[in-house]
Computed example of a mutant assay.
Amino acid sequence: MANADMFHIRTEEAPVMPAPVSTTGVIGWMRQNLFSSIPNTILTIIGILIAYSIIEPFIKFAFVDAIWTGTDRKACLPAEAGGYVGACWAYVEAYFPQFIYGRYPVEEIYRVNIVYAMFVVLLVPLAMPSAPFKAINAVLFLFVFPIVAYFLLTGLVFGDTVILPIVETPVWGGLLVTLVIAVTGIVASLPLGILLALGRRSKMPIVKLVSVIFIEFWRGVPLITVLFMSSVMLPLFLPEGVVFDKLLRVLIGVTLFSAAYMAEVVRGGLQAIPKGQYEGAMALGLRFWQMMGLIILPQALKLVIPGIVNTFIGLFKDTTLVLIVGMYDLLGQIQSSFSDPTWSTPTQSHSGYLFAAMVFWCFCFGMSRYSIFMEKKLHTGHKR
Rank of each mutant, 00 (worst) to 15 (best):
E279N: 10
V254R: 02
K246C: 01
A260I: 04
I215Q: 06
A263L: 03
A260P: 09
K203V: 12
L256C: 11
Y278D: 07
M204T: 15
L270P: 01
K208S: 09
Q277G: 00
L234P: 03
I213D: 04
L223F: 12
F228Q: 14
R219W: 06
V207M: 07
I206W: 11
Y278G: 06
V265Q: 09
F257K: 00
P235H: 05
I252G: 03
I213K: 00
F214M: 12
G269D: 04
G193L: 09
S258C: 15
A263W: 01
V242E: 04
P222W: 11
G276A: 10
I273F: 02
K275I: 03
G280I: 06
G269F: 00
E216V: 00
A281Y: 05
G268Y: 10
V207R: 09
L227Y: 14
M229R: 00
V243F: 01
L190E: 03
L198T: 04
L192R: 05
F237I: 15
L195R: 15
F257T: 02
G241R: 01
V265A: 08
A281C: 09
K203N: 15
K208I: 04
P239T: 12
E240N: 13
G280K: 05
A281D: 03
S202C: 01
S231G: 08
L238C: 10
V221I: 13
I224E: 14
V207C: 07
W218N: 12
G220I: 07
G269P: 01
L234C: 08
I215Y: 07
L209N: 06
V212T: 11
P235Y: 06
K203P: 05
L227P: 04
G280F: 03
K208L: 00
G268I: 06
A260D: 10
V250C: 04
A260W: 03
V254F: 14
M233G: 02
R201L: 14
L236D: 13
E240Q: 14
V207G: 00
M204Q: 15
L227Q: 12
M233T: 14
V207H: 05
V243Y: 09
Q277V: 11
L223P: 02
V266L: 08
R267Q: 08
A259V: 05
R200D: 12
V226M: 15
V212I: 08
F257D: 04
L270F: 13
A259K: 00
M204I: 15
P191G: 09
P191F: 05
V226L: 15
F244S: 00
L248C: 01
F214C: 14
L256N: 04
R219C: 13
P239Y: 13
V265M: 07
G193R: 02
V243C: 01
F244E: 01
L209H: 10
P235V: 06
M233W: 12
L209F: 12
P235M: 05
T225D: 08
S189H: 04
P205D: 11
Y261S: 12
A259W: 00
R267L: 02
V242I: 15
I224N: 13
V243E: 10
Q277S: 08
P274C: 11
Y278E: 10
L270G: 02
V266S: 06
P205W: 13
F214L: 14
I215C: 15
G199T: 08
G280A: 15
V250P: 00
L192E: 06
G269V: 05
L209Q: 07
